[in-house]
């Protein structure tokens, strides 16, 4: 049976009917058309589906949709403001942190959750924040650089 939930998505209030068995990722991608959040594994093992819920990075592929009720949720689509990309997005682009790009949105969301909580993270903090985001292309080095550059720039 469908249930109605209301939550804040990228700073806008959303009310939508959902099926209890859906995951948050399913709602975002298949119902709301927000395909920036990716599914890489479906089991919380790769981080491609990372979104920010109440300030924390979460795997949306194993997040029960009904738990979204009343929450403040940000996806990759919520980062740019008036067509201007977020500093983290710009840093990823400029530092070469993007290759095939499939892990990129999740990676950026993990990095954002970190910087929101800790504006001046250490390299270890950065690694801890993205340890659940697998990337097969870049070897991570330039991703770490990108996040560092934003931290330093604040």
């Amino acid at each position: 049976m469908r249930k109605e939930i209301t939550f804040t998505l990228n700073n806008e209030e959303v009310t939508v009917e959902v099926e209890p068995k859906w995951t948050l990722l399913y709602l975002l991608r298949e119902v709301l058309g927000l395909t920036g959040t990716k599914e890489g594994c479906g089991y919380g093992e790769c981080g491609a589906c990372t979104v920010i819920i109440e300030g924390k990075a979460v795997n949306s592929c194993i997040y029960p949709v009904l738990e979204a009720e009343g929450k403040n949720i940000t996806t990759i689509e919520g980062l740019s403001k008036n067509g201007e990309l977020h500093v983290l997005q710009k840093a990823f682009i400029e530092k070469g942190a993007v290759q095939c790009g499939f892990c990129t949105p999740g990676m950026i969301m993990s990095a954002k959750a970190l910087l929101d909580e800790k504006p001046n993270p250490t390299e270890d903090d950065i690694k801890e924040a993205i340890e659940g985001n697998l990337c097969r292309c870049t070897g991570y080095v330039m991703i770490i650089d990108a996040i560092k550059s934003v931290a330093a720039g604040r």
């Binding site: 919380g44 981080g47 990372t50 924390k56 990075a57 979460v58 795997n59 997040y63 993990s110 959750a113 801890e128 924040a129 993205i130 340890e131 659940g132 985001n133």
Partner: peptide, 9 residues
């Protein structure tokens, strides 16, 4: 345990 995302929930 797991990753940051997992530990968060």
């Amino acid at each position: 345990l797991g990753s940051k995302q997992i530990r968060n929930v």
